[in-house]
Design a protein around this nucleic acid. Structure first.
Lengths: 237, 237
DNA sequence: CAGTGGTCTAGACCACGCA
DNA sequence: GCGTGGTCTAGACCACTGA
């Protein structure tokens, strides 16, 4: 591993242990370069890693400091649980099951054509999956993938992780995904599969997944039960 | 401005103009350092900026390439509009008005104590604001800020941008914010202020804003009308 | 094996915070 | 004005891609 990454890891460990809690201040870059027997540029690069990860901040002319909230950072993720509330801590339970409801090949609708940048004549896989937590359905997921992206997709693969299949068998590298999040009234399928009552909303997530190259790979529309799923994010202002 | 930033800006301009569209490939780093009369390290730093912004990707041993979706990137943001739909393009209209519904000082509840890391005896400002788009209310916002953070806050300030007031008058630097997003049934206040019907859900956003130092600064809980607001994000997988 | 990106160095100068 | 972080250089070596 690169030297700057190892230094970054070491510093992260120290921060976790509270080693710099005295005044939240890290040793200056010259001291660090002596300690790690390296150039100051390399130290700076390691500190940049910590800055980007939100663990420290630096003030030119003053020093580098550990953020007060360095330790309570969780990544962007989906929390799944029952009886979500404002202060409820949700455990990521492991009893999660996936049921494949349908798997077909068809032509894309207009939204899919736009999102995936394909013509109306480009065939796509289309499948729906229902997710269960402890036997209770919590989200209904409709996914669309151009056939040309993964020629050999089968229903069996859908039961597991499609992504690891793709990574390992196709050698594709994923890039970023764009998503839009809304609240919505339940539709007919939500009533049927998520057991929603008419006054129970869903959390709707529309997502486009891109490869590293920037080519769109997958379009999905997910409805989550409002009382079992929340999404959390960390952003920079 | 630093040289690497100027180079990054120049390259961004070129990408926008489509200058590297031939095979999506940028000149190699040696060529770029000749062109910009600088060292290769500086070029690398400029390319790192573009990589972090999701405009390009590099493959060691091969080259640097422009992503196919480099041009359709919008930042994380809130879209406000009427009749939101899956394919609807929403304009950020300017006819937005803010009404301050209440402004008081009190002690924090448990959620606020936890989120702001303050004791139950620490006084906080508490205020509600209602936002209108073209005369129609679209979100109800409840905000809590410890008094010690901004001793001189007044109701007048709330009508405008609290943040610019704070930046300019207090010299505070904002860091990141953490947010959780859910769908929820409307509560009594939503029915009253957002004119929700009983079967019309809200998009609930719980947010904690931190200063650069990592000290929590503001806690807020916002309810958005489901048919007027959506939130969009770009994430890395 | 030639081309390209990733990393690292030692030293330099500048910009900024703070007393 | 001293201490600190931010940037930059010229050159070097290594790791990886792809023909």
């Amino acid at each position: 591993m690169a030297k700057y990454k190892m230094i970054a890891d070491t510093l992260k460990e120290r921060i976790k242990k509270g080693q710099y809690l005295h005044d939240n201040r890290l040793p200056d870059q010259s001291k660090l370069s002596e300690e790690f027997e390296t150039s100051r540029v390399t130290i700076k690069k390691a500190l940049d890693v910590l800055t980007n990860e939100g663990l420290i901040y630096t003030i030119q002319g003053s020093g580098s400091y550990v953020k007060k909230n360095a330790l309570l950072r969780s990544k962007n993720n989906i929390k799944i649980g029952k009886n979500l509330g404002l202060t409820t801590l949700v455990e990521n339970t492991k009893d999660i099951r996936t049921e494949v409801l349908g798997f077909s090949v068809r032509f894309p609708n207009e939204t899919e054509q736009t999102s995936l940048i394909i013509s109306r004549d480009t065939p796509v896989y289309s499948y729906e999956r229902l997710r269960y937590l402890e036997g209770k359905p919590y989200s209904l997921e409709k996914t669309t993938i151009p056939v040309e992206s993964i020629p050999g997709l089968s229903k069996k693969v859908l039961q597991g992780s499609v992504y690891s299949y793709i990574k390992e068998n196709m050698g594709l590298v994923f890039g970023e995904y764009h998503q839009a999040i809304r609240a919505a009234k339940p539709d007919e399928e939500d009533l049927k599969y998520l057991n929603n009552k008419l006054d129970e909303p869903v959390l709707e997530v529309e997502k486009v997944l891109y490869l590293e190259t920037g080519i769109p790979f997958e379009y999905s529309l997910v409805h989550h039960r409002y009382d079992m799923v929340e999404m959390s994010f960390i952003n920079n202002s």
